[in-house]
Amino acid sequence: MRRALTILFLMAASFAAGQTNEAPRFSFPRWGPSIKAGSVYNFTTDIEGGGSFAVNRYFVEAGLARLWRFDRMVSVSAGYGQDDYRFSGLGTDPWNNIDNFRVGLFARWALDEQWVLFAGPSVRSYGEAGTDLDDALVGTFFGGASYRFSDRLTLGPGFMVAGQIEDSTRYFPVLLVNWNLTEKLSLETGGGFAATAGPGLSMVYDFSKHWKFAVTARYEKKRFRLNGTGFAKNGVGEDRNVPIIGNIGYFFYPGGHVSAVIGYDFAGKISAEGADGLKLYENDYDSSLMAGLVTSFRF
């Protein structure tokens, strides 16, 4: 926890990474490097059938963006994160540290004053420490378009294709939205902590020039390759839940952001499959509290 909070306080990730056509509130250079990082701690929760676990999640990501103007840009990024699971009362732990590596490309391109296109392919690796990188690789693609109906409303269709380790590829629609309900309150498509299974929906309140409050909900499903030491040797682990996250962010200008996050995970389930695909373990777990810090800086 102490290591995570130290890493977290120094760096972390932007909370509203998935905004649609909203103009940035600071100017970008033509080429702009960035750094993101963060850590969130999921407090101990009980597993149905016995045992408990806690998770310390952290990540760091570096990127480089080429901007022609705010609505025409291309960026590349590479990042690393770890989910440090700590089980107790199970006899044999299903898994321990899950490493994830990611490289990605993102493009946002305005066709005119109303239409903007988005595309974001990435390659990711989710695997327990000790697994081969190529055994844990998956590909993901996000694409879509948004239409600016007015100064207050931008909507558009999107879709996401997410590869799954030893499972069928997931296809699901995404609604791109930026709706200014009032001068300070807006409903937005928002990004998640590090690399999640897809964007969520955020209610955002601009308290002042520097302070922003937000609440985000999403569905998360993570599948990862297991190593050859646990009871599901060389199999696949899975952790899925529905987090609802509150965010209090302070924005430095021209390009800094630090936020405190606190939230709750609901409808949690963990499972493990053997190398032959047979289910060896599956149990629900209780709702759990999460808390941490996230931040990002552009240079």
Rank of each mutant, 00 (worst) to 15 (best):
V74F: 05
D84Y: 09
G63P: 04
M73F: 14
A65R: 02
A54E: 03
R108G: 00
R102S: 15
W95K: 10
V76E: 09
Y85G: 06
I98T: 12
W95I: 14
N56Q: 06
A62H: 04
W109Y: 08
R108I: 00
E61A: 06
W95T: 14
R86C: 05
G63C: 03
E113F: 00
F70L: 08
A78R: 12
L64F: 01
F87E: 09
F106S: 10
V74D: 08
A62Y: 07
A62T: 07
S88L: 02
W109C: 04
R66A: 01
G63S: 04
A107C: 03
N96E: 15
G91E: 08
W95S: 12
G63Y: 02
R57M: 12
P94A: 09
A62I: 08
W109V: 05
D99V: 10
D112S: 03
D83I: 11
W68I: 04
N97W: 09
R72C: 07
R102I: 15
G89K: 06
T92Q: 14
M73E: 13
R69D: 15
R57I: 06
D71G: 06
V74A: 03
D112A: 01
N100L: 11
A110D: 00
D83F: 06
Y85L: 12
G81D: 13
S77H: 13
V60P: 07
R72Q: 13
D112R: 00
W68M: 07
F53P: 05
F101R: 10
E61F: 08
A65Y: 01
I98C: 11
N56D: 05
D99I: 10
R66F: 04
N56F: 01
D93T: 10
L111M: 11
A62K: 04
R57A: 13
R102C: 13
V103G: 01
G104S: 05
W109F: 10
R66G: 02
G79Y: 10
L111K: 02
R69N: 15
V76M: 12
A110Q: 00
T92E: 11
R57S: 11
A110I: 00
A54W: 00
D71L: 04
A54Y: 01
F70V: 10
A78F: 07
L105F: 03
A107D: 02
R86F: 02
R72G: 03
A107I: 03
R66P: 00
G89E: 10
R57T: 08
R72N: 08
P94M: 07
W95R: 11
G104R: 02
Q82A: 15
M73N: 15
N96V: 09
W95M: 13
G81M: 15
